[in-house]
Simulated assay, not measured.
Amino acid sequence: MSALREDFKEILRLVRPNTRVLDIGCGEGDLLELLTQEKGVDGQGLEISPSGVAACLAKGIAAVQGDGDRDLDHFPTQAFDYAILSKTLQQMREPRHVLIELMRIADRALVSVPNFGHWRMRWALLTQGRMPETKALPDPWWSTPNIHLCTLRDFTTLCAELGLRIEACAAVSPDQPARSIDPARPVENWRAETALFLLTRERPRPPAPERAATGDLFD
């Protein structure tokens, strides 16, 4: 395995031991291998690339070939404790649906997204008038796999619309340790290059207790 990615370190910190984990877009299984060795998880991968699936199987990691846009619907409800989608949501054709499916098949989701509101993005647009190329988003506009880029504010707004609670959030970058943040703070929409979210479903509110009839319209 190559040098440990900073987002992998943060995911390793957040995932509880001996849990069931699904990694969507698992590549060659580096993250699942790490979680298995360090946390004893029962891991499974979903990967669109046949060579990626073969690499996972060679490491003893359970993986199947599939497309996160289409195949999450086939997983049973609450089959996992964690569903992980690392730097992939912006490549999905229907990111809203994918997020809904993650929260259906798992109790928690770990989702990382590059922040298009980062100051480097804004500066490049302001000074050059062109789509930015950064460490987090290195490909030119005509060859990038990213089709649904968003800012932190966009993502937190979507979570609120779907009734998801942000249990934890960290800013991550390739060359700096992860930093715990409050993604609702406007300054983080400028500062965080990539953000990793730990999401859970909002607990439904208990029904209001019935009030005894008193015959009075106003108590």
Rank of each mutant, 00 (worst) to 15 (best):
M1F: 11
M1A: 13
L4Q: 10
I11R: 04
L14E: 05
R16Q: 12
R16G: 05
P17N: 09
R20S: 07
R20A: 07
L22T: 03
I24G: 02
C26R: 07
C26K: 05
G27Y: 03
G29T: 01
G29C: 02
D30A: 13
L31G: 01
E33M: 11
L35K: 06
T36V: 08
K39E: 10
K39M: 13
Q44R: 14
Q44H: 12
E47M: 10
S49A: 03
P50I: 05
S51H: 15
S51Y: 15
G52M: 09
A55P: 13
L57E: 14
A58T: 10
A58F: 05
A63D: 07
A63T: 14
Q65G: 13
Q65R: 15
D67V: 07
G68E: 08
G68K: 07
D69P: 07
D69V: 09
H74W: 11
F75I: 13
P76F: 09
T77G: 01
Q78H: 11
D81N: 12
A83G: 09
K87A: 12
K87H: 12
L89M: 02
Q90I: 05
Q91H: 08
R93Y: 06
E94T: 08
R96V: 12
R96T: 09
V98W: 01
L102Q: 01
M103R: 03
R104E: 04
I105F: 04
A106I: 01
A109H: 01
A109E: 00
A109Q: 00
V113M: 00
N115T: 00
F116M: 10
F116C: 02
G117P: 00
M121Q: 15
L125F: 09
G129N: 08
R130I: 10
P132H: 03
E133M: 15
T134C: 07
T134D: 09
L137V: 13
W142R: 13
S143C: 13
S143Q: 14
T144Y: 04
P145K: 07
N146F: 13
L152N: 06
R153C: 12
D154H: 12
T157V: 14
C159T: 08
C159G: 09
E161G: 05
L162R: 10
L162N: 07
I166V: 15
A168E: 06
C169D: 04
A170F: 15
A170W: 15
A171L: 02
Q176G: 09
Q176R: 15
S180V: 13
I181D: 03
I181P: 03
D182R: 05
P183C: 12
N189M: 01
N189C: 03
R191D: 05
T200M: 12
R203E: 14
R205C: 08
P207T: 12
R211N: 05
R211D: 06
A212M: 12
A213N: 13
T214I: 05
T214V: 05
